[in-house]
Amino acid sequence: MAPDRWPRLNRRRVRDSSSVVMFDPGRSARAVPARGRAWSSAAAVSRTIALICAVVLFSGPCAADPWGDGVQSFTAGAFAGFGQDQLPWIVLGPPRGGGALEGSVDALSLGNGGIVTIAFRDNVLFDGPGDDLIVYENAFHVGSEDGPVFDELAYVELSVDRVTWVRLAFDPDTREGLAGRAPVFSRPRNGIDPLSPEAGGDRFDIEGSGLTFVRFVRLVDVDGEIADVGDLVAPGGKGGFDLDAVAAIHSGALALISGHVSSAGLAVERARVILHPAEGVRRYRRRTDADGFFSFSRVTPSGEYTVRARRVGLGKAAATVHVDMTAVEADVDLALAR
């Protein structure tokens, strides 16, 4: 689909820093109060890609790529504006770096204090050897490749469930641990592997975060709390951190937990099924279909989960299942009993 056919934003509303812009590729964008729940995804794109793979290429599902798949939420800060008319697409997929001396224009300006949350929907970032995450901004050297870096910085925050967030440690003096410090050299068709160190961007090892898996990356413009060169330039609509792309160096498949609910050997329709991770507070809910079947897709393969089923008048049941990086599917049968 051509960029000029993608959904456009109501610019008068997205420039209000008290609003959160919500994106759904299949609908028009809209702004809601910042306290409201933000939801968006690149689901339409994922479904289209899957259809092409399965129907046109006759090759089954496509392997998940390492790139961020959706903009979960975006809160515009002061002097934001640039790139918003191309959301969410402008921050999805591989980077389009401008090199050492020129910042990319394929970027979203967060504005001073702006916040954007990127979601991995068809894959999960996991803690592997060395660096695990890359954030691509549009930093560049001023004057020459040996000149100072024009940087606009952001804190990096991680979550597996959008309930608990961890901010990566950083040094305010060296800026180590912040995003927005390194130029980006990789762009489509220039021969530089975007996941390689030669590609540029800011690389992070999540080992010290206490997280094994990451599904959401939140970037928060430092808003003057840490000085950067961008503070010295009249921002116009290009204020704050500028996001080009986000990538998972260590990217794995999500898990599938499914099964059936029965009572006295018969399938139970509309039984309530709850999936609860052994570690974590977020629960996921489903209802069984006419055959008693339920399914939880895109599950983080983080170990043990408890599956509970209940139907008023028929009783309840529970079981524990295990999914990990080597076993991403689990099936369970739950027989209700009073």
Rank of each mutant, 00 (worst) to 15 (best):
I49K: 03
Y155M: 07
G177R: 00
Y155A: 00
L254H: 01
E207Q: 14
D122W: 06
S159T: 13
D24M: 10
V56M: 12
E176I: 15
S263M: 00
T212F: 05
V233M: 07
G81V: 08
S196H: 11
L178W: 01
A330P: 09
S297N: 14
P188Y: 04
F241C: 02
S186M: 00
A169L: 09
S258V: 04
V166S: 11
G315R: 01
P7Q: 10
G236N: 06
L219N: 01
S258N: 08
V21M: 12
G130R: 09
V20F: 02
L211A: 07
M22A: 13
P301C: 05
D171S: 14
P61F: 15
S144K: 10
R215I: 10
E329L: 08
L110W: 01
R167D: 11
F241V: 10
D24L: 11
A107T: 13
Q86P: 02
V332F: 01
G77S: 14
L51N: 15
W39Q: 13
A337S: 15
M1G: 11
L57W: 14
H322F: 07
R15G: 13
E279I: 07
E176A: 12
G70K: 10
D244A: 04
L195Y: 08
F79M: 13
W67E: 10
H276D: 12
R15T: 12
V328N: 06
A154V: 00
G208W: 15
F204C: 02
D151W: 00
R47T: 14
